[in-house]
Simulated scan of single mutants.
Amino acid sequence: MATASIVRCTKCAKNAGTVACEGCSAKFCPRCFNNHRQHLSKELDNIVYEHDILKQELEKPSEDETHPLLRQIDNWRKESIDKINQLADRCHTDVVKLIGDNKNQLADAFRKLTNTIRDGRSEEDYDERHLNMWITQLKELKDNLIKLSNVHVEVDKQQPSWIQKIIVRKDSHQQKEVKDSKL
């Protein structure tokens, strides 16, 4: 005599397990099957909700300044500008000091020239050679006052760049994963 196998509900273990779910291969009684479908419906609602949120994000304008990558670039810009400003301030201070030192040296040279000219005038001890020499010295002093002939501002090409260059790179590994997921 053949015995009939009894199919039980996987949830409540009742004998009335007559409905099979194709997705999970479980067998349910009608009441548990309805509960199972309600649970699946709630999960679908959650998926649709997440889908809608992602859709909104994708439809936003891409000029969103709050993106972490854009903030990273802005931070790099600020730090680099701060470094440039600090170095420029130090160089500016150095040049101001050199200008002051140069003025002091020029003032000393000017006083000596003034005394020489006064002495020549008061003693009437001068000729064309003296006049030409004094005018040349005055012109040199004036030129040196305007332009520091022994000071230059230049780029130190032997030092490595102290501002790190940034680049934007798209990983090819990530591209492959995106392509594979579309297959």
Rank of each mutant, 00 (worst) to 15 (best):
I135R: 12
R90N: 03
D171T: 05
N144T: 01
D143C: 06
D89N: 11
E59A: 08
L141V: 03
D52M: 06
W162H: 14
L98K: 07
K165Y: 04
A107M: 04
L145C: 15
T93D: 14
W76V: 06
W162P: 07
H67Y: 05
L87M: 13
I84Q: 13
D171A: 05
E154I: 05
Q86D: 15
R121C: 05
Q56Y: 01
N102E: 06
E124M: 09
D119M: 02
E140Q: 12
N132R: 10
T114L: 05
N115Y: 01
K147T: 15
E128Y: 03
V96L: 14
E177F: 12
V178H: 08
V153G: 02
R118D: 14
N102W: 05
D89M: 08
Q137A: 12
R121T: 09
L69Y: 08
L138G: 02
M133N: 14
K179H: 06
Q164T: 12
H51D: 11
Q105A: 12
N102S: 13
K139R: 13
L87F: 08
H92G: 07
L148Y: 11
D94Q: 12
D143H: 06
N144R: 14
D52Q: 12
L138Y: 00
Q105W: 03
D156M: 04
R90I: 02
L113K: 00
V96G: 02
W162I: 10
R121A: 13
S80G: 15
D156E: 09
D64Y: 03
V168Y: 07
S172K: 11
T114H: 12
F110A: 07
I117G: 03
T66P: 00
T93I: 05
N144I: 02
K176I: 04
R121I: 15
D127S: 08
C91N: 10
A88K: 14
I99K: 15
Q56R: 07
H51E: 09
D156N: 15
